[in-house]
């Protein structure tokens, strides 16, 4: 048996950077799941499609702005524009979904909004598949190529941009939740909606704000995903959606820092973790095993530690 890893340091550092890249996407999407769960105790299974719609809106914006003909510094503006359009699209979709599919079921048995969410998810997925004749779209290949190196680590510009903008968005969200009046209201509603209303908080409005914040994160994730993976399609929201749900469960559903950390843990488990398993004698797991690893983690956590890997108490939140 080999006492040490057989593959080179640069291979492992590449896996690490790849893990952070997919982890960033998972973390951004996971925030929407965890925040909505925090205030409504409901899993918004349409959230993966909110991410997908954002990705398509960003794609449309980039195409309108010139697509592959974009060049020079204008590219930065175009990407910023695409992100804003994507956020707007995801937010609008999410607000409509909340109003039409969830709010009427607010006092219904818990299974009802869950089924409604799955229905919305399938509806949106097939709506876009139908509109695109089930064909993939390709994000304009405009992001500057090249990479930076630091020691054994090499990171492409697009990966650096993806990770940095994800972290920036999450820091912004965290500051809103922890430091603002709105954030306090959200935490108060998550803990006890009746008591929050006695403080003068409009609970329904706060719930809408939570959907907006989560959808904005998913919209950004949609553009970053498109820029990085380039191929998008109507069904693209499904796997990242349940992966992000897994990440939220890993971190303790309802917890915002947990969802962020869970995203990265999952991203790394799928990449670095898979390759570590491959170091075992007789094991050879292809890329498709990423999903097996992710969902094995999900089931294991749900069975053995349903409050998440970081939770000290079941009431830990914020």
């Amino acid at each position: 048996m080999h006492p040490a890893l057989t593959l080179s340091v640069s291979f492992w550092s590449d896996q690490f950077v790849n893990g952070l890249t997919t982890g960033s996407i998972y973390a951004l999407i996971a925030l929407g799941y965890t925040m909505v769960y925090g205030v409504l105790k409901m899993i918004n299974f349409a959230h993966g499609e909110v991410f997908m719609l954002g990705s398509f809106a960003g794609y449309g914006a980039l195409v309108v702005m010139g697509g592959n003909d974009l060049s020079g510094p204008v590219i930065a503006l175009a990407i910023l524009g695409a992100i804003i359009v994507a956020m707007a699209a995801s937010v609008s979709a999410s607000v409509v979904i909340e109003r039409l599919a969830y709010r009427p079921l607010r006092n219904a048995p818990r299974l009802a909004p869950l089924i409604s969410a799955i229905g919305v998810s399938i509806f949106l997925q097939y709506l876009v598949l139908e509109q695109t004749s089930a064909r993939a779209k390709f994000y304009p290949d405009i992001f500057p190529r090249g990479s930076l190196s630091a020691g054994p680590f090499e990171i492409t510009y697009i990966q650096l941009f993806l990770i940095a903008s994800s972290v920036a968005m999450m820091a912004l969200l965290y500051a809103i939740i922890q430091r603002t009046r709105l954030g306090r209201a959200i935490r108060a509603v998550a803990e006890n909606p009746t008591n929050a209303s006695l403080m003068g908080v409009d609970v329904n409005r706060t719930i809408v704000v939570v959907f907006i914040l989560g959808a904005a994160m998913a919209g950004v994730a949609g553009v970053l995903y498109g820029l990085f993976f380039q191929t998008i399609r109507g069904s693209m929201g499904f796997i990242p959606g349940i992966k992000a749900f897994t990440a939220a469960v890993l971190g303790g559903i309802g917890s915002i820092p947990g969802a962020m950390a869970g995203g990265y843990v999952l991203g790394l488990a799928e990449t670095v973790g898979r390759e570590l398993l491959n170091e075992l004698p007789g094991v050879s797991l292809g890329n498709q095993w990423r999903d097996v690893i992710a969902f094995t983690l999900l089931v294991t956590i749900l069975i053995f530690r349903p409050t998440g890997i970081f939770a000290q108490r079941s009431t830990t939140r914020a």
Partner: peptide
């Protein structure tokens, strides 16, 4: 001020 005080425990 409701019965049970209604303090937000996590705040």
């Amino acid at each position: 001020v409701p019965e049970g005080r209604g303090i937000f425990h996590s705040l």
